[in-house]
Structures are given as structure tokens and as C-alpha cells.
Simulated scan of single mutants.
Amino acid sequence: MIPNCFRHRHAIKKVGRAEQKNQSPCVLWFTGLSGSGKSTLAGAVDEYLFDLGCHSYLMDGDNVRYGLNRDLALSDEDRAENIRRIGEVSKLFVDAGLITLCAFISPFAKDRNRVRSVLDSGEFIEVHVSTPLEECKQRDPKGLYKKALKGDIHNFTGLDGVYEVPVRPEITIDTTGSTPFECAEVIVEYLRNKRMIPDMGNVSMGM
């Protein structure tokens, strides 16, 4: 309990907001190594859902650190707090009836499971972007692997920093050999099969 703090009960509930939007709110949690394609894939899914008329919102790891989490560094403790805060924000977005996409390395299983634990059953969908390390190093879109291999960055996930591979993710996707749109279709089809979004046909996207 927090002293002198009391929960306010709102008249409009999550179920009502979800019914208004004709969808089941959830969190699509994209986890994987730097360079695996998390943000690109999450963006493709977000665009796909938008074009289908769904209500979604995307939170990206770097973008969040410019605002909400700008006081956090990259220590294990700060990484854990980073994910905790995102989990709480995600819970609010789900309560608003949104399909929430989160693209974060989130290297520790306990932190990802903590986010799962604050949501209702079935609302947390772990998407393991399982692109191999060598492919990620070759892509190196931000030049971070190059810096880490030179010793300019320490505790870099996948090299000298730990990445705990998801044991039972709801979805596993390797982005090598497929376009972002093709990978996005797999995730959208998962949502359709779970009846979380209506079957509104396919969309054409120039990706």
C-alpha cells in the first residue's frame, strides 16, 4: 500500500474500450539482439494494423530513452527499471483498449516475465526476433557492434553482455531472408487466429 494514495475507479472499463475498437488489447513484446530487426518489424506490424483500421501504438527502446527513461543508463539495474516502467505504461495502453507494440532488447527473462505478470492472461505476446548474432553484427545499423568490438562499449548484449533467449515465446521470427512485411503478416495472422482482431482481409504495403 502507498500511504495517502487511493485508486480511482473509472466508469469506462477496459472491456468497453476494447469493444468500441472491435479488438482485443494486448502487448506485442519484440525482444532480440541489437540489429535483429525488432524496430523495423514492429513498425511494419504497426503500419499493417493501422491500414486494417486497428488501434495500435508503438514504443521503441531508443525513443523512450529520450523522454520517460532519459535518467537511466545501461547498467543491469537501469535496464531492469527501464523495462519495469515500459511494462507499466503498456498496461495503461492495454487498459485504453490499444494493441501496444514494444521493441526492446530486454535481455533478461525475469524483466520480460515481470511485464507479463502485470497483464491479464493472454495479453502479453512475446515475439522473439531470433536473427542470428553474426547477421546482426553484419547489419550493425547503428555501428554499435563495431564500437563494442573495439572496446568502446562494454556489457554489450550478445557480446560481453548477457541475452537470455526466450524459452517459450508466443511467436519466433528470423528476419533473414524475408521482408519486414512478410514477417509482419505472420504476426497479424497470429492475432487473427486468436480472434484478437477481426478478419478484414489483407493490405498492400510498399515495404
Score class of each variant (00 low, 15 high):
residue 2 I to C: 00
residue 3 P to R: 15
residue 4 N to C: 08
residue 5 C to D: 02
residue 6 F to L: 12
residue 7 R to F: 14
residue 12 I to W: 06
residue 14 K to Q: 14
residue 15 V to A: 08
residue 15 V to W: 05
residue 17 R to A: 02
residue 19 E to H: 09
residue 21 K to T: 03
residue 22 N to V: 08
residue 23 Q to I: 09
residue 25 P to M: 07
residue 32 G to R: 02
residue 32 G to Y: 01
residue 34 S to D: 04
residue 38 K to A: 00
residue 39 S to M: 01
residue 39 S to N: 06
residue 45 V to C: 14
residue 47 E to I: 11
residue 48 Y to N: 01
residue 50 F to K: 15
residue 51 D to T: 07
residue 57 Y to K: 05
residue 60 D to N: 08
residue 66 Y to V: 00
residue 67 G to Q: 12
residue 69 N to T: 14
residue 72 L to D: 14
residue 72 L to N: 08
residue 74 L to M: 10
residue 75 S to I: 07
residue 75 S to W: 10
residue 75 S to H: 04
residue 79 R to D: 03
residue 80 A to V: 02
residue 80 A to L: 06
residue 81 E to T: 12
residue 81 E to N: 08
residue 83 I to D: 05
residue 84 R to H: 14
residue 87 G to H: 03
residue 87 G to D: 03
residue 89 V to W: 13
residue 90 S to G: 14
residue 90 S to P: 02
residue 91 K to Q: 15
residue 91 K to I: 02
residue 92 L to C: 04
residue 94 V to M: 09
residue 95 D to G: 07
residue 97 G to C: 04
residue 98 L to A: 11
residue 101 L to Y: 11
residue 106 S to Y: 13
residue 106 S to I: 12
residue 107 P to A: 01
residue 108 F to M: 12
residue 108 F to N: 00
residue 109 A to M: 13
residue 111 D to S: 09
residue 112 R to D: 10
residue 114 R to T: 11
residue 115 V to C: 15
residue 117 S to E: 15
residue 123 E to W: 00
residue 123 E to Y: 03
residue 124 F to P: 03
residue 130 S to D: 10
residue 133 L to H: 11
residue 133 L to K: 12
residue 140 D to H: 11
residue 143 G to T: 04
residue 145 Y to A: 00
residue 147 K to L: 04
residue 148 A to K: 02
residue 149 L to V: 05
residue 150 K to V: 08
residue 150 K to P: 05
residue 151 G to S: 12
residue 152 D to I: 11
residue 157 T to R: 02
residue 157 T to M: 11
residue 158 G to W: 11
residue 159 L to V: 11
residue 161 G to P: 10
residue 162 V to P: 04
residue 166 P to F: 11
residue 166 P to S: 09
residue 167 V to I: 15
residue 168 R to T: 15
residue 169 P to T: 05
residue 177 G to A: 12
residue 179 T to A: 04
residue 180 P to D: 08
residue 181 F to I: 02
residue 185 E to R: 12
residue 186 V to E: 13
residue 189 E to A: 00
residue 191 L to R: 04
residue 198 P to Y: 05
residue 198 P to W: 00
residue 198 P to R: 04
residue 203 V to K: 05
residue 204 S to K: 14
residue 205 M to H: 13
